[in-house]
Computed example of a mutant assay.
Amino acid sequence: MEHLINPNVRQIEISGIRKFYNLVSEIEGVLSFTIGLPDFPTPMHIKEQAIEAIENDITTYTHNAGMPELRKAISSFMDEKYSLVYDPDSEIIVTVGASQAIDITFRTILQPGDEVILPGPVYPGYEPLIKLAGAVPVYADTTATSFKMTKEVIASHMTEKTKCVVLPYPSNPTGVSLTKEELAEIAELIRGKEIFVLADEIYSELTLDRKHTSIGTMLREQSIIVNGVSKSHAMTGWRIGFLMAPGSITQHMLKVHQYNVSCASSISQMAALEAMQNGINDAVNMKEEYKHRRDYVFERLQQMGLKTVLPDGAFYFFIKVPEGFQSSLDFALELVRSKKIAVVPGSAFSAYGEGYFRFSYAVSMESLMTGLDRLEGFLKER
């Protein structure tokens, strides 16, 4: 019966990140720098609020768009943090993680044959959703622009079929972000055209050298903003994302969301409410620690002679594979077998990621020191 499965689904592959993670998870004693999630616990005040919600039987369906009080808190948080102004009653949807927000966005705005411009390399979660909507992912090579989607890069890939441009910054896997000036140039390019911008800003609270700027402050009517509490409040498993756009867009997204999941978990929404109201600065300590780790890793990589762009957000390095390896996968496999260090081959992040590997520093300093010592030994032995 497999031949009856939707061809768009049959052609999709499991994420290369997960494939490699599953492959090396069976090797005993491996130090993993693969999965991108905070190594901090969810703050206690958030967990306590969730426990209280359970004890008070807040366990029923909520409004499809999310609890009104949570949407109000999200609106206030986004305004205070990023000067993003969205009406909590008509322009914010609480989703099951940022991933579902991206899914319902594409299913709402895309039609068969539409083109979506993506930076390459990029997180692998966008392409399958674009294809499931019948649209075409168009990768733009950013390896020559320090992994940034510049105005010129976007313009060179725009056609009459372009329906959306994805701006996932701070970036997974590269850790780079866009400056206010760079975003302004992109906004000017797209303004007035029948093109959406999907800004995936899930790492916005983890910008390390400057405050995050959202293109939603410059191109509001064409922008769809995705955010959430996964990275900012170490709540990956709680699965709460935020989707923000003008009401003329969200009214249609809400229909897709409603028939997809009805609503996000009531318990998780109560936890997110606490995060938005009383955890507005919960990311500060995490960010300081990430910056300390980043600086340490960058110094070690430079000492080893490895080439990388200094990341200014998230918690990743995207590093050039040293010479002598046929592919990024070959490098990663030899590294894990020889030194029991797991990194993600760059090929998991599109063809433009080939020749690189992703190294996550969302681990303890002890693990970083040990892992980088092993990496240095690996390079010296070759």
Results as ranks from 00 to 15, higher is better:
E2V: 12
I5A: 10
N6C: 11
P7L: 05
I17W: 05
F20E: 06
L23G: 04
L23P: 04
V24C: 02
V24E: 13
V24S: 12
E28N: 13
V30D: 04
T34M: 13
D39Y: 15
P41R: 05
P41C: 01
E48N: 09
Q49D: 12
E52H: 14
E52W: 11
I54P: 12
E55Q: 14
I58D: 13
T59D: 13
T60D: 14
T62H: 03
H63K: 13
K72T: 02
F77K: 04
E80Y: 10
Y82A: 03
S83R: 08
L84N: 07
E91G: 06
V94Q: 11
S99R: 14
Q100E: 10
T105H: 12
I109N: 11
L110T: 03
Q111G: 01
P112R: 09
E115R: 12
G120T: 00
G125E: 00
G125H: 11
K131N: 07
L132R: 10
V136W: 04
T142W: 00
T145L: 01
T150N: 06
E152Q: 14
V153F: 11
I154C: 08
T159F: 14
V165G: 11
L167E: 10
P168G: 08
P168F: 07
Y169I: 03
S171Q: 15
G175M: 07
L178Y: 05
L178S: 03
T179H: 05
E181G: 01
E182R: 00
E182M: 05
I186M: 02
L198V: 10
D200K: 10
I202P: 06
E205M: 09
T207M: 08
R210V: 06
K211D: 15
T213V: 15
I215D: 09
G216V: 04
M218G: 00
L219F: 01
R220D: 03
R220T: 02
I224N: 13
V226C: 02
V226H: 02
V226K: 00
M235E: 09
T236S: 15
W238G: 01
R239V: 06
M244L: 08
M244H: 05
A245D: 09
P246R: 12
T250S: 01
T250R: 05
H252C: 03
L254N: 08
N260G: 11
V261T: 10
C263H: 09
A264H: 00
A264Q: 03
S265P: 05
S266F: 06
M270D: 11
M276I: 03
Q277E: 15
Q277Y: 08
I280C: 06
A283F: 11
A283R: 13
V284E: 15
N285I: 08
K291C: 08
R294I: 00
Y296I: 02
L301T: 05
L301W: 08
L306T: 07
K307I: 15
P311S: 01
Y316I: 00
F317T: 03
P322A: 06
P322S: 05
E323I: 04
Q326I: 10
S327V: 00
S328C: 12
A332C: 15
A332Y: 14
L333E: 15
L333P: 04
V336Q: 07
A342E: 12
A342C: 01
A348K: 10
Y356H: 14
V363N: 08
V363L: 05
L368N: 13
M369E: 15
D373E: 15
R374L: 14
L375Q: 12
G377R: 00
F378K: 04
K380H: 13
R382L: 10
